[in-house]
């Protein structure tokens, strides 16, 4: 299988320029890069078909070994149509970006920036929760005819507490 050296060099140059261009931040250049990559790939497919021969299926007397391989050309045709559609769509997107933001640059993801700027503090997980220091279960006592936690009952014993159970005459307040 012989290959066309010029086509190979052109293909290499197209790949190099294409990869350089898609690394840019400007959308138009990215688009140009994608177009170059698609065309370089078309040349690659052409190269896989081997040397150029006679038109296939045209004349009966042509031997099978004199044909060019028709399949890569069919593949290239399909791939040209696809890259055409994608290019048209990308142009639409670039125009829309220009209308919306008046700039041709790829913009950063807002949510990514927010997550990157968030400190490692989490309001829910890292909140100060007062630790339960007592090893004893909270006891309840009978006080003033009601059941209440021991510490509350203790507080009510103190002078000046207004929260006293009513006496049998209804007084106490």
């Amino acid at each position: 299988m012989s290959v066309n050296l010029t086509l190979l060099i052109v293909m290499g140059a197209l790949y190099a320029c294409g990869i350089y261009l898609i690394l840019e931040r400007s959308l138009t250049r990215v688009l140009l890069g994608l177009m170059l990559l698609a065309n370089a790939t078309n040349l690659l497919i052409l190269a896989t078909g081997g040397y150029a021969g006679l038109a296939p299926f045209y004349a009966k007397e042509t031997g099978a070994e004199d044909y060019s391989d028709p399949l890569p050309q069919a593949l290239i045709l399909t791939s040209i149509v696809i890259s055409f559609a994608v290019t048209a769509f990308m142009l639409g997107i670039i125009y829309r970006t220009w209308v919306l933001a008046r700039q041709d640059d790829i913009q950063d993801d807002v949510e990514d920036l927010r997550v990157a700027e968030t400190p490692s503090f989490d309001a829910e997980d890292d909140a100060e929760i007062p630790a339960e220091t007592s090893e004893f279960p909270v006891a309840t006592v009978m006080a003033g005819g009601r059941e209440m936690p021991a510490e509350h009952a203790a507080a009510e014993e103190k002078p000046g507490s207004t929260n006293v159970a009513p006496g049998p005459e209804g007084g106490g307040k």
């Binding site: 994608l34 990559l37 698609a38 790939t41 690659l44 497919i45 896989t48 890569p72 593949l75 791939s79």
Partner: peptide, 11 residues
């Protein structure tokens, strides 16, 4: 494009 290159190589 990577997929297409791979197809070309396979072919």
């Amino acid at each position: 494009v990577l997929f297409l290159i791979a197809i070309a190589m396979v072919y």
